[in-house]
Nucleic acid binder design. Structure first.
Lengths: 111, 111
DNA sequence: ACTACCAGTAGTTTTTAGGATACTTAAGCA
DNA sequence: TGCTTAAGTATCCTAAAAACTACTGGTAGT
């Protein structure tokens, strides 16, 4: 199982990590894998993220069609974020990340 | 398949992305998945990385026991980097990242 | 009347990652 | 007598990411 077929593989790794990486994007996607969530739900569950950062990250994920923003009701404004059909495809990958993380946490995250 | 069992899952996502994320770590690991490589081999294949950055990243990966540094010969100093037994376990994950990336590149990396 | 909730926006400041540039040591080559 | 290779170090610097602070408007609760 060769990863680097004509240098294609490695570039893709960088691209994917651009989407899923950073301090918050992976976590946001992971939370949305389980169920759609509202703005403040995400804010609560993502410890210590600020409104402005959360907004920015969500807008980015919308732009690349991973996440959908749906206004449920206005006044009081209620907004729901959910994975798009396309965004759902990330679920498997996130699952693999979690699996690896749980298995190797002691060796790697230790100390 | 629930990801967030008692908030455990999501924290792990952040931790794993810390290891594999950033501009270079994923790429370095991906290259080492295929075969051990020497410092300057990595430097060549990772386009435009600087020596100091490469050194920093490799030291980090050593610290967390993902990568092993082996001096093959001194004067001229020849050093080889390879995945540790433990580091090998990342191969599957990288493979999944590549797979997702290749499948979804058009939708997400387009424009 | 006051307070909190909801989903943000605006502007500024801090932090961090990564880049640029110059330098090192020792051997071998020409 | 330099020039090259290998694997780095040491400093400084910049651009981007994220944090901090303050504010919005309309509604419901006490």
């Amino acid at each position: 199982m060769e990863i680097n077929t004509k240098q294609q593989g490695i570039k893709v790794v960088a691209d994917v990590l651009d989407i899923v990486g950073g301090k918050w994007r992976g976590q946001i996607l992971a939370h949305l894998c389980d169920a759609p969530k509202r703005f403040n739900e995400l804010k609560t569950v993502l410890n210590r993220i600020t409104s402005s950062t959360l907004t920015k990250e969500l807008r980015y994920l919308e732009d690349i069609k991973m996440v959908e923003r749906k206004i449920i009701q206005d006044t009081p404004m209620i907004v729901e974020y959910r994975l798009t059909a396309h965004g759902m495809s990330i679920k498997d990958l996130i699952y693999h990340i979690v699996e690896w993380g749980l298995k190797h946490r002691d060796t790697v995250f230790g100390k």
